[in-house]
């Protein structure tokens, strides 16, 4: 493995982490959207808010991390991709603004009208943002981003069959991950009925995702032959792993083993992304720009590798601390001052 591949590999791990953790946060918003009327959906929404609250900002930084590593180590490919795909990226950024702000602001307002408004903004943008990200991935993976600044078509690079597939799958996968993650959260807090509700949602979403994935094969074959060849060739074992992990996860959901189900669901999603990477290796921008060609100077890559290693040593324990802290029940009794609203 070359240094460039190591650095890109670490950025890719960041992307997978964003898809899993950030994705689950987005999915939480999707379920918030579909939770039904104010009264009926109240508990479901509260559960989602409770689970996302402490972690969403940290989960969101994975994206920033991926961007800055790419623009430092692979500046040309980065510039090519963001200028050609600037429309869906800007829309995704707006989506993230609406989502983050609405989520945080909703907590601080108490009137029903305001909470409803922010809630709607949060939920709707949770649906749109992953769609645009999926469309971006579709554009890159189907080879619609040529090297060179704004060299690709700013519309057809993301309005195309592969992007539509990518966007749809992204939304579905986010929703699925959220439902699986929330099953365990709800059960831990003793809300078994909510756990059941999320379990049903997870199973339904899994079925839909599987169906879309199957249909997607035909789309890729017609629209992105290089990717298709890669996925069915060199990437096939990884894709098979993803399917197997997905099936195991469904089995675990059916038997209500939620914590393990999380693990296998995560594996299934990660494997699909790895499959994409394997399929287009050694190209960064299909069909011509390889990772080696895209990589910038050795000195920069060395600095990056050192920074990533040292930074990782600081970051990982902190992340583990964060997740563990909020995956257990609070140790202090509830505050008597608390009055309902």
């Amino acid at each position: 493995m070359t240094l460039a591949e190591v650095v890109l590999g670490v950025a890719f791990v960041g992307l997978v982490a964003y898809a899993l953790f950030g994705g689950a946060d987005f999915g939480g918003g999707v379920w918030d959207l579909l939770a039904g009327g104010t009264r009926r959906g109240a508990r479901l929404r509260a559960r989602i808010e409770h689970s996302i609250g402490p972690v969403w900002e940290a989960n969101h930084v994975w994206l920033i991390f991926v961007l800055v590593v790419l623009w430092t180590g692979f500046s040309g490919a980065f510039a090519a991709a963001v200028t050609t795909l600037y429309i869906p990226l800007t829309l995704a950024a707006f989506g993230m603004i609406a989502r983050g702000a609405a989520f945080a602001y909703r907590k601080s307002v108490t009137t029903l009208g305001m909470r409803r408004f922010f809630g709607a903004a949060f939920a709707l943008s949770s649906l749109l943002t992953p769609f645009f990200f999926g469309a971006v991935v579709g554009g890159v993976a189907s080879g619609r981003v040529p090297p060179g600044i704004a060299a690709g078509d700013v519309v057809s690079s993301w309005v195309n069959p592969t992007s539509a597939l990518g966007g749809t799958l992204a939304v579905l996968v986010c929703a699925y991950l959220a439902a699986v993650f929330l099953c365990a959260d709800a059960r831990r807090e003793g809300e078994t009925d909510l756990a059941e509700a999320f379990r049903a949602r997870a199973l339904v979403t899994a079925a839909i995702t599987g169906a879309v994935g199957l249909a997607g094969i035909a789309v890729l074959r017609a629209d992105a032959p290089l990717l298709y060849a890669g996925l069915t060739g060199r990437g096939l074992p990884v894709v098979a792993l993803s399917v197997a992990a997905g099936l195991v996860a469904i089995g675990l959901l059916i038997t209500r083993r939620y914590v393990l189900a999380r693990l296998f669901s995560g594996l299934a999603v990660a494997a699909i992304l790895v499959g994409w990477a394997v399929a287009q290796y050694p190209y960064m921008l299909l069909p011509g720009l390889t990772v080696e060609d895209a990589a910038r100077s050795h000195a920069t890559l060395v600095a990056l590798a050192v920074a990533l290693a040292v930074g990782g040593l600081v970051l990982l324990p902190a992340l583990v601390f964060l997740y563990r802290l909020f995956q257990r029940a609070p140790h202090e009794p509830e505050d008597a001052r608390d009055v309902g609203y």
């Binding site: 430092t72 500046s75 040309g76 510039a79 100077s297 920069t300 990056l304």
Partner: peptide, 15 residues
């Protein structure tokens, strides 16, 4: 494109 490899680095640390 031209200077990311020089001044992108502090942004990584900032990440």
């Amino acid at each position: 494109d031209r200077f990311g490899e020089v001044f992108g680095f502090p942004f990584v640390l900032e990440g």
